[in-house]
């Protein structure tokens, strides 16, 4: 793969790589670093990339592995900060504000999902991958992907309804 091919096929994936990295690593800075690191890796291996039929899925797999490694390394080094137990201030009556609040709440709900479900939600609901592709990226059967996804979607919905009803998280 030469430079122009790389620029046309691989580089446009940078946003997807960044979004998945951000989903897993949470911090924007770390996600940016990860994206840069991953693209350097891809660039170095650009001659081997032709062998992969689906470069996009390959890039996603690499991103997933890299981020999970980063998380593992971080967890053994650092204390974990739990973001999930922030108390929300009273919910405004204004619906638009409420909606904005809800949107950011969705973000936090996804943040506390198990990593596998996080990746699946990201790949399916945000990046619109097919189940077969997600299965390949995660090394899972498509049916297992469906089960995880369904579980994740139901968890998010239930939590949203719960917060809606009680007005607290």
């Amino acid at each position: 793969m030469n430079q122009t091919e790389f620029l046309n096929t691989v580089l446009p994936l940078k946003d997807k790589v960044f979004r998945l990295a951000k989903r897993l690593l949470v911090s924007i800075d770390e996600a940016e670093d990860a994206t840069q690191e991953l693209f350097l890796k891809l660039w170095k291996n650009k001659n081997k990339l032709i062998e992969y039929r689906n470069v996009e899925a390959f890039a996603m797999t690499m991103t997933k592995n890299y981020c999970l490694d980063q998380l593992k390394a971080k967890r053994s080094n650092n204390l974990k900060l739990v973001h999930s137990n922030y108390k929300d201030p009273a919910i405004s009556l204004e619906r638009s504000i409420e909606l904005k609040d809800c949107v950011s709440r969705v973000h936090r709900l996804i943040e506390v999902l198990p990593e596998k479900q996080k990746i699946i939600i990201q790949l399916r609901d945000i990046e619109n991958f097919e189940f077969e592709e997600i299965g390949k990226i995660l090394d899972l059967q498509p049916t297992a992907v469906r089960v995880s996804l369904s579980r994740a979607r139901k968890t998010i919905r239930e939590q949203l309804i719960k917060q809606q009803n009680y007005g607290i998280s």
Partner: peptide, 12 residues
């Protein structure tokens, strides 16, 4: 979320 972009340049 799907409109979020990676804005930095990647030095290749």
């Amino acid at each position: 979320s799907s409109t979020e972009r990676y804005t930095k340049t990647i030095p290749l």
